[in-house]
C-alpha cells in the first residue's frame, strides 16, 4: 500500500473518534505510519465530531486532508458536508439507521449499512461505530481483522465486559465490507 485516508464523522458521543483511534492503533501495530487528527473543541459538545486517519508506509506528510479516499458517516449533515469531497473511486459508508437520504456520488462506491440494527443484533446498539469501522476494514483491508480485534481488546482492557459485543459488532461490519468489496469487483 502507499497512502490512504479515511474521514469518520458523526455527532459527539457516537464514537467515531474512537473508531478512528482503533484503526490508527491497528495500523501502527502493523508497522505503518499513522496520524489521527480530530475536529476539536466546541463542536464536540453535541455538535459534529469528526476525525481524519491517515495511514501510509512512509511518514505521513499532511494529516490535514480535505479530499479523503474514504468517508464513514453517522449523520446527515456530515454526509452532505463531506461526501462531495471523497476522491473519485473512493468509498462512502452511510449508517442508514440514522441517515435517511442517499448519496448522489456515482463515481464512488456507496455502502449503506443499518449500523445500529447490526450492532443491536451483535449485542449492543451502542457499537454502531464499530460496525462502521468493520465495513471500512473489510472493504479496504488496510489492516487485518485480527489486528483490529486486538486493538479493540487493548482499548477496552479496563472495561473487559464490553469487549465481546464490540468485537461482534466489528466482525458483523467486516462481513458487510467484504460483501461490498465483492459486489464491486
Amino acid at each position: 500500500m502507499a497512502s490512504t485516508e479515511v474521514l469518520m464523522a458523526g455527532f459527539g458521543g457516537q464514537g467515531m473518534l474512537l473508531s478512528g483511534k482503533l484503526l490508527a492503533h491497528a495500523a501502527m501495530e502493523k508497522g505503518l505510519e499513522v496520524s489521527w487528527l480530530p475536529s476539536y473543541g466546541p463542536e464536540m459538545r453535541g455538535g459534529t465530531a469528526n476525525v481524519t486517519v491517515c495511514i501510509s508506509d512512509k511518514p505521513v506528510a499532511s494529516p490535514y486532508i480535505v479530499y479523503p479516499r474514504a468517508l464513514l458517516v453517522m449523520n446527515q449533515p456530515s454526509l452532505e458536508k463531506f461526501a462531495p469531497r471523497v476522491k473519485p473511486g473512493g468509498l462512502i459508508v452511510v449508517n442508514s439507521s440514522l441517515v435517511p437520504v442517499k448519496s448522489d456520488r456515482q463515481d464512488c462506491q456507496v455502502v449503506y449499512v443499518a449500523a445500529n440494527q447490526v450492532a443491536q443484533q451483535a449485542g449492543t446498539g451502542r457499537a454502531a461505530n464499530l460496525v462502521m469501522l468493520g465495513v471500512y476494514v473489510g472493504w479496504s483491508e488496510v489492516v487485518s481483522l485480527e489486528s483490529t480485534v486486538r486493538a479493540i481488546e487493548e482499548e477496552f482492557a479496563e472495561k473487559a465486559k464490553f469487549i465481546p459485543a464490540n468485537v461482534a459488532a466489528f466482525k458483523a461490519g467486516y462481513e458487510e465490507g467484504r460483501k461490498a468489496r465483492g459486489a464491486k469487483s
Binding site: G41, P42, E43, R45, G47, V66, Y67, K81, F82, P84, R85, K87, P88
Partner: peptide, 16 residues
C-alpha cells in the same frame, strides 16, 4: 486534480 471543495457552510461553533 482533486475535486473542487464543497462550498463550506459557515461554522457556528460554541466558543470554548
Amino acid at each position: 486534480a482533486s475535486p473542487k471543495p464543497a462550498p463550506q457552510k459557515k461554522r457556528k461553533d460554541k466558543e470554548r
